[in-house]
Write a protein that binds this DNA or RNA. Structure first.
Length: 241
DNA sequence: ACAATATCCTGCGAGC
DNA sequence: TGCTCGCAGGATATTG
Protein backbone atom coordinates (compact mmCIF):
# COMPACT_ATOMS: atom_id res chain seq x y z
CA UNK A 1 0.00 0.00 0.00
CA UNK A 2 1.44 3.33 -0.96
CA UNK A 3 2.48 5.30 2.12
CA UNK A 4 4.82 8.28 2.32
CA UNK A 5 7.94 6.55 0.90
CA UNK A 6 6.04 5.10 -2.05
CA UNK A 7 4.25 8.33 -2.95
CA UNK A 8 7.49 10.25 -2.52
CA UNK A 9 9.27 7.82 -4.86
CA UNK A 10 6.60 8.35 -7.50
CA UNK A 11 6.76 12.10 -6.98
CA UNK A 12 10.51 12.19 -7.54
CA UNK A 13 10.32 10.06 -10.65
CA UNK A 14 7.43 11.98 -12.17
CA UNK A 15 8.99 15.35 -11.52
CA UNK A 16 11.86 14.28 -13.82
CA UNK A 17 9.39 13.27 -16.49
CA UNK A 18 6.43 15.61 -16.62
CA UNK A 19 7.30 19.03 -15.21
CA UNK A 20 7.09 21.52 -18.07
CA UNK A 21 4.80 19.35 -20.15
CA UNK A 22 1.20 20.25 -20.86
CA UNK A 23 -1.91 18.33 -19.86
CA UNK A 24 -5.13 19.48 -21.55
CA UNK A 25 -3.24 22.58 -22.60
CA UNK A 26 -2.20 23.45 -19.06
CA UNK A 27 1.47 23.70 -18.23
CA UNK A 28 2.73 21.57 -15.32
CA UNK A 29 4.83 23.67 -12.98
CA UNK A 30 5.50 21.37 -10.05
CA UNK A 31 4.83 17.98 -8.47
CA UNK A 32 4.52 17.85 -4.72
CA UNK A 33 3.44 15.47 -2.00
CA UNK A 34 1.36 16.17 1.10
CA UNK A 35 0.70 13.20 3.39
CA UNK A 36 -0.01 10.38 0.91
CA UNK A 37 -1.48 12.72 -1.68
CA UNK A 38 0.36 13.49 -4.89
CA UNK A 39 -0.17 17.00 -6.20
CA UNK A 40 0.41 18.09 -9.79
CA UNK A 41 0.41 21.89 -10.01
CA UNK A 42 -0.48 23.86 -13.12
CA UNK A 43 0.54 27.32 -14.26
CA UNK A 44 -2.95 28.69 -13.62
CA UNK A 45 -2.59 27.63 -9.94
CA UNK A 46 -5.06 24.78 -10.25
CA UNK A 47 -3.93 21.26 -9.36
CA UNK A 48 -4.58 17.64 -10.17
CA UNK A 49 -4.40 15.51 -7.05
CA UNK A 50 -4.16 11.76 -6.55
CA UNK A 51 -4.64 9.32 -3.70
CA UNK A 52 -3.51 5.77 -4.48
CA UNK A 53 -5.12 4.27 -1.37
CA UNK A 54 -4.51 0.50 -1.33
CA UNK A 55 -3.80 -0.66 -4.83
CA UNK A 56 -3.39 2.45 -6.95
CA UNK A 57 -0.51 2.76 -9.41
CA UNK A 58 0.67 5.73 -11.43
CA UNK A 59 2.91 4.55 -14.23
CA UNK A 60 4.57 6.81 -16.78
CA UNK A 61 4.19 5.43 -20.30
CA UNK A 62 2.78 2.24 -18.79
CA UNK A 63 0.81 -0.29 -20.77
CA UNK A 64 -2.92 -0.09 -20.01
CA UNK A 65 -4.56 -3.19 -18.49
CA UNK A 66 -8.03 -4.22 -17.36
CA UNK A 67 -7.34 -2.29 -14.15
CA UNK A 68 -6.47 0.97 -15.88
CA UNK A 69 -9.00 3.54 -14.67
CA UNK A 70 -7.61 6.60 -16.42
CA UNK A 71 -5.00 7.62 -18.95
CA UNK A 72 -3.56 11.14 -18.85
CA UNK A 73 -2.10 12.28 -22.16
CA UNK A 74 0.63 14.91 -22.33
CA UNK A 75 1.21 17.29 -25.21
CA UNK A 76 4.34 15.43 -26.37
CA UNK A 77 2.52 12.11 -26.72
CA UNK A 78 3.73 10.60 -23.47
CA UNK A 79 1.15 9.43 -20.96
CA UNK A 80 0.49 8.59 -17.35
CA UNK A 81 -1.77 5.66 -16.55
CA UNK A 82 -3.71 5.21 -13.34
CA UNK A 83 -4.30 1.56 -12.41
CA UNK A 84 -6.32 0.41 -9.42
CA UNK A 85 -7.58 -3.08 -8.75
CA UNK A 86 -9.76 -2.22 -5.76
CA UNK A 87 -11.01 1.14 -6.98
CA UNK A 88 -10.40 2.94 -3.69
CA UNK A 89 -7.93 5.35 -5.19
CA UNK A 90 -9.05 8.62 -6.74
CA UNK A 91 -7.94 11.72 -8.62
CA UNK A 92 -9.46 15.13 -8.68
CA UNK A 93 -8.93 18.47 -10.40
CA UNK A 94 -9.00 21.26 -7.83
CA UNK A 95 -8.81 25.05 -8.06
CA UNK A 96 -7.44 25.58 -4.59
CA UNK A 97 -5.34 22.70 -3.26
CA UNK A 98 -4.25 24.58 -0.16
CA UNK A 99 -7.50 23.83 1.67
CA UNK A 100 -6.92 20.12 1.22
CA UNK A 101 -3.30 20.36 2.31
CA UNK A 102 -4.35 22.08 5.50
CA UNK A 103 -6.45 19.15 6.66
CA UNK A 104 -3.39 17.07 7.46
CA UNK A 105 -1.13 17.11 10.47
CA UNK A 106 2.58 17.89 10.26
CA UNK A 107 4.61 15.97 7.68
CA UNK A 108 6.30 12.95 9.22
CA UNK A 109 9.71 13.94 7.86
CA UNK A 110 9.44 17.51 9.09
CA UNK A 111 7.93 17.40 12.56
CA UNK A 112 10.21 18.38 15.45
CA UNK A 113 10.27 16.72 18.85
CA UNK A 114 8.68 19.60 20.71
CA UNK A 115 5.63 19.54 18.45
CA UNK A 116 5.51 15.74 18.44
CA UNK A 117 5.60 15.49 22.20
CA UNK A 118 3.00 18.24 22.63
CA UNK A 119 0.69 16.43 20.20
CA UNK A 120 1.17 13.15 22.05
CA UNK A 121 0.18 14.85 25.30
CA UNK A 122 -3.20 15.68 23.77
CA UNK A 123 -3.97 12.03 23.02
CA UNK A 124 -3.10 10.14 26.23
CA UNK A 125 -5.65 7.37 25.73
CA UNK A 126 -4.79 6.57 22.15
CA UNK A 127 -2.94 3.45 21.25
CA UNK A 128 0.30 4.48 19.66
CA UNK A 129 -0.06 2.58 16.38
CA UNK A 130 -3.45 3.95 15.32
CA UNK A 131 -2.26 7.38 16.33
CA UNK A 132 0.80 7.18 14.08
CA UNK A 133 -1.55 6.25 11.25
CA UNK A 134 -3.88 9.19 11.94
CA UNK A 135 -3.15 11.63 9.12
CA UNK A 136 -4.45 14.56 11.15
CA UNK A 137 -1.97 13.71 13.89
CA UNK A 138 1.06 13.10 11.68
CA UNK A 139 0.97 12.83 7.90
CA UNK A 140 2.31 10.01 5.74
CA UNK A 141 2.49 6.88 7.89
CA UNK A 142 0.33 3.82 7.21
CA UNK A 143 0.09 0.23 8.36
CA UNK A 144 3.45 -1.05 7.15
CA UNK A 145 5.64 1.76 8.41
CA UNK A 146 3.85 2.17 11.73
CA UNK A 147 4.73 -1.47 12.49
CA UNK A 148 8.33 -1.01 11.37
CA UNK A 149 8.72 2.27 13.26
CA UNK A 150 7.42 0.77 16.50
CA UNK A 151 9.69 -2.25 16.18
CA UNK A 152 12.67 0.06 15.74
CA UNK A 153 11.47 1.94 18.82
CA UNK A 154 11.05 -1.19 20.96
CA UNK A 155 7.47 -0.14 21.68
CA UNK A 156 4.43 -2.38 21.28
CA UNK A 157 1.72 -1.10 18.92
CA UNK A 158 -1.04 -1.29 21.54
CA UNK A 159 0.79 0.83 24.11
CA UNK A 160 -1.26 3.79 25.35
CA UNK A 161 0.38 7.11 24.71
CA UNK A 162 0.20 8.11 28.39
CA UNK A 163 2.42 5.14 29.31
CA UNK A 164 5.26 6.29 27.04
CA UNK A 165 8.27 7.79 28.78
CA UNK A 166 10.14 10.66 27.15
CA UNK A 167 12.94 8.42 25.91
CA UNK A 168 10.40 6.25 24.10
CA UNK A 169 8.72 9.22 22.43
CA UNK A 170 12.14 10.39 21.33
CA UNK A 171 12.97 6.99 19.94
CA UNK A 172 9.68 6.84 18.08
CA UNK A 173 10.24 10.18 16.37
CA UNK A 174 13.81 9.22 15.55
CA UNK A 175 12.60 5.94 14.04
CA UNK A 176 9.88 7.69 12.03
CA UNK A 177 12.49 9.79 10.24
CA UNK A 178 15.07 7.07 9.88
CA UNK A 179 12.78 4.38 8.55
CA UNK A 180 10.91 6.62 6.13
CA UNK A 181 14.17 8.00 4.75
CA UNK A 182 15.72 4.57 4.26
CA UNK A 183 12.49 3.31 2.68
CA UNK A 184 12.55 6.20 0.19
CA UNK A 185 16.14 5.29 -0.63
CA UNK A 186 14.93 1.80 -1.58
CA UNK A 187 11.94 3.06 -3.62
CA UNK A 188 9.43 2.00 -0.98
CA UNK A 189 7.83 -1.37 -0.23
CA UNK A 190 6.07 -3.52 -2.81
CA UNK A 191 3.48 -5.43 -0.88
CA UNK A 192 0.14 -5.92 -2.57
CA UNK A 193 0.25 -4.04 -5.85
CA UNK A 194 2.64 -1.18 -5.41
CA UNK A 195 4.79 -0.23 -8.37
CA UNK A 196 6.66 3.03 -8.83
CA UNK A 197 6.17 5.47 -11.71
CA UNK A 198 8.55 3.39 -13.84
CA UNK A 199 6.54 0.23 -13.20
CA UNK A 200 9.25 -1.17 -10.91
CA UNK A 201 8.86 -2.79 -7.51
CA UNK A 202 10.10 -1.11 -4.35
CA UNK A 203 12.90 -2.92 -2.53
CA UNK A 204 12.27 -1.95 1.07
CA UNK A 205 10.29 -5.17 1.69
CA UNK A 206 13.69 -6.85 2.12
CA UNK A 207 14.26 -4.70 5.17
CA UNK A 208 10.93 -5.31 6.86
CA UNK A 209 11.53 -6.53 10.41
CA UNK A 210 7.97 -7.26 11.53
CA UNK A 211 5.37 -6.45 8.88
CA UNK A 212 4.22 -9.83 7.52
CA UNK A 213 7.32 -11.44 8.99
CA UNK A 214 7.39 -14.79 10.81
CA UNK A 215 10.41 -14.57 13.09
CA UNK A 216 12.24 -11.73 14.72
CA UNK A 217 15.56 -11.11 12.99
CA UNK A 218 17.13 -10.05 16.28
CA UNK A 219 15.96 -12.67 18.79
CA UNK A 220 14.31 -15.38 16.67
CA UNK A 221 11.06 -15.02 18.60
CA UNK A 222 7.80 -15.58 16.71
CA UNK A 223 6.37 -12.30 15.43
CA UNK A 224 2.88 -11.71 16.83
CA UNK A 225 0.08 -10.50 14.62
CA UNK A 226 -2.90 -8.91 16.32
CA UNK A 227 -5.80 -6.64 15.44
CA UNK A 228 -5.88 -3.07 16.64
CA UNK A 229 -8.88 -1.03 15.56
CA UNK A 230 -9.66 -3.49 12.78
CA UNK A 231 -6.12 -3.28 11.38
CA UNK A 232 -3.35 -5.83 11.52
CA UNK A 233 -0.40 -5.03 13.76
CA UNK A 234 2.85 -6.99 13.86
CA UNK A 235 5.35 -6.94 16.69
CA UNK A 236 8.05 -8.93 18.46
CA UNK A 237 6.89 -9.73 22.01
CA UNK A 238 10.50 -9.99 23.18
CA UNK A 239 12.00 -6.88 21.59
CA UNK A 240 9.03 -4.56 22.06
CA UNK A 241 7.78 -3.50 25.49
C1' DA B 1 -14.66 14.75 22.89
C1' DC B 2 -12.85 10.90 22.20
C1' DA B 3 -12.25 6.04 20.46
C1' DA B 4 -13.89 1.99 18.15
C1' DT B 5 -16.30 0.04 14.34
C1' DA B 6 -18.55 -0.32 9.62
C1' DT B 7 -18.01 0.84 4.91
C1' DC B 8 -16.34 0.96 0.17
C1' DC B 9 -13.89 -3.03 -3.53
C1' DT B 10 -11.85 -7.14 -5.57
C1' DG B 11 -8.34 -10.83 -5.83
C1' DC B 12 -6.57 -14.36 -3.40
C1' DG B 13 -5.92 -18.26 -0.33
C1' DA B 14 -7.90 -21.52 2.92
C1' DG B 15 -11.04 -25.09 3.69
C1' DC B 16 -14.46 -28.35 2.57
C1' DT C 1 -11.70 -29.81 -8.75
C1' DG C 2 -14.57 -26.03 -7.69
C1' DC C 3 -17.13 -23.65 -4.78
C1' DT C 4 -17.81 -20.35 -0.72
C1' DC C 5 -16.07 -17.55 2.67
C1' DG C 6 -13.14 -14.40 4.93
C1' DC C 7 -9.47 -11.31 4.74
C1' DA C 8 -6.56 -7.29 3.35
C1' DG C 9 -6.50 -2.02 3.96
C1' DG C 10 -6.91 4.28 3.84
C1' DA C 11 -9.86 7.34 5.07
C1' DT C 12 -14.50 8.69 6.09
C1' DA C 13 -18.98 8.09 8.32
C1' DT C 14 -21.27 6.34 11.92
C1' DT C 15 -21.90 4.39 16.33
C1' DG C 16 -20.59 3.78 21.18
Amino acid sequence: MPELPEVETIRRQLSQKIIGKRLNGQKITDIRRRAKILIVDFADSSSLIFHLKLTGQLIFNGKPSQYTRKVFNFDDGSQLIFNDVRKFGWWKKVKEVKKIEEKFGPEALEIDFKTFRASLKKRPNSKIKPLLMDQKFIAGIGNIYSDEILFASNVRPMRLVKTLVKKESQKILQSIKKILKVAIKHQGSSVEHYLDACGQKGNYVKYHKVYQQKKCSLCDEQIKRIKIGGRSAHFCPKCQK
